[in-house]
Design a protein around this nucleic acid. Structure first.
Length: 423
RNA sequence: GGAGAGAUGCUCGAGUGGCUGAAGAGGCACGCCUGGAAAGCGUGUAAACGACUAAAUCGUUUCGCGGGUUCGAAUCCCGCUUUCUCCGCCA
């Protein structure tokens, strides 16, 4: 969430920036500012009362020691009176605080200056493109047919075991998953990312930390028995490593990578767009996470984008990078680049990665701070990106590389798969 | 799952109702000493919120978390979380 300081000190600027995300914050920010005043006045009064009580209490102890019982008794009543008033002040302070907090989480992050104006996906700006879109024959098959033909992925079997959106990978299909995961992790490690294997379930505090809760509750699977959530991405457990942590500036930037299975309910999405591997309830993904100083975070973002580009290049897939417009960006992001690869049989672009700088928005909720050279604690900037999500990569690989002899495996991947063709 | 014992600052560790935001030790930082280092000496070493902004200063809160008792709680009581030991179960 945004910091109170920013909201109260740069109100106009914040409002202007929020408008780029088509968010009208005037009313809500007005309320927050009012509540903040209420909170502060209540606290000042309460603090003064508590200070009085503390002093009186010390005197009482002293008087009792000296045997002055009546005087002590008098002070005791005085304390009791002061405390009556405290109940009200405390309620006012806590009430304002809580209400303010509830409003604060409703405000999205402010977009970076470079975010293009626009409402929809069509308004996103293509940064650059690469790779070659293959010319497939007329009878080229979409990946769900290829998966069946070579017995790589069984969607119906997943339905039997669990439900729609939980595919079963088999044979070379399963090995391809394992190969891609290892390939992505190795590449990340070579770039200096520390490999993490996180829990796949998180508690509510972690969900709040990265912003899945309270608003996106319905998108996560929830175990009511223990009140745990299945992670929608490794970003959640990995970023929460740094919740309530004060780092030293020399530790930054922190670079972590993690593979995890990801679970998403995505209720109510059916039809052609979600066919096959296009959208799943469970899928594999390797994530990269960075924690950085505000001064360096955009440099980090660029580095991450270049890194993800190197991955799709190695996989020999046609790609494009989009700079998301204000209307298409996520709630928490300040600047996002989406990677799409072209799936040549479906003849459509598929999103395979989203690389974002959240600036201090997540860090403020997480209380992830660092001590700068002047020993002042400041909020870190957090960034993350998929590197990469597997299903749509697999869709594009299968479709784009289909030949009469079988499906060709890109060179960089062969050491990981142990085979160079699926036939 | 059952029984017992713990949880104190960066770390270890003292502390059973007021003089304890917290002894002592270690670590770390800075300074002195040194040709340089070690040793030694000295100083410092939490966060959040508030008091007009920053610095300084002051106030409040925080000894796992949440409640309670009391004029006053690290210290007493209750609930929860978590760690260790033993038993049970188990990949």
């Amino acid at each position: 969430m945004l910091t109170l300081k920013a909201i109260t000190e740069n109100t106009e600027e914040i409002l202007r920036k929020l408008a780029v995300k088509h968010f009208d914050g005037k009313e809500i920010i007005g309320k927050i500012i009012d509540l903040n005043v209420q909170r502060r006045t209540s606290q000042s009064a309460l603090d003064a009362n508590l200070a009085t009580i503390n002093t009186l209490s010390k005197s009482i102890g002293q008087l009792i020691k000296e045997g002055k019982k009546e005087e002590a008794e008098a002070l005791r009543t005085q304390v009791a009176e002061t405390k009556e008033n405290n109940k009200y002040l405390e309620a006012s302070m806590k009430g304002a605080e809580e209400e303010m907090q509830n409003l604060l989480v409703l405000i999205p992050n402010t977009p970076h200056e470079s975010v293009p104006l626009g409402r929809h996906a069509e308004d996103n700006v293509t940064e650059r493109t690469g790779g070659i879109i293959p010319a497939l024959s007329e009878d080229a098959l979409p990946h769900w047919d290829l998966a069946k033909k070579y017995d790589l992925i069984d969607f119906e079997l997943g339905v039997k075991i669990t439900g729609a959106g939980f595919p079963v990978y088999k044979g070379k299909g399963a090995r391809l998953q394992r190969a891609l995961i290892n390939f992505f992790l190795d590449c990340a490690r070579e770039q200096g990312y520390l490999e993490i294997e996180p829990p796949y379930m998180v508690n509510a505090a972690s969900g709040y930390g990265t912003g899945q809760l309270p608003d996106k509750e319905g998108q996560m699977y929830h175990d009511a028995g223990d009140d745990y959530y299945l992670i929608p991405t490794a970003e959640v457990p990995v970023t929460n490593i740094y919740r309530d942590v004060i780092l030293e500036e020399k530790e930054l930037p922190i670079k972590n990578t993690a593979y995890s299975a990801c679970f998403r309910r995505e209720a109510g999405s059916y039809g052609k767009d979600v066919r096959g591997l296009n959208r799943l309830h469970q899928f594999n993904k390797v994530e990269i996470v960075r924690i950085d100083t505000p001064e360096h975070s955009y440099e980090s973002l660029e580095e991450m984008v270049n890194y993800v580009q190197s991955l799709v290049d190695k996989l020999e897939l046609p790609w494009r990078i989009l700079r998301l417009c204000g209307g298409d960006m996520s709630f928490t992001s300040a600047l996002t680049f989406d990677f799409e690869v072209f799936s040549a049989a479906q003849k459509r672009w598929l999103e395979v990665s989203s690389v974002s700088n959240f600036e201090s928005y997540q860090a403020n909720r997480l209380k992830c701070r660092y001590r700068d050279v002047n020993k002042k604690t400041q909020l870190c900037h957090t960034l993350n990106g998929s590197a990469l999500a597997l299903p749509r990569i697999v869709a594009a690989l299968l479709e784009n590389n289909q030949t009469a002899e079988g499906i060709r495996i890109p060179k960089a991947l062969i050491p990981y798969t142990g085979f160079d063709i699926i036939d």
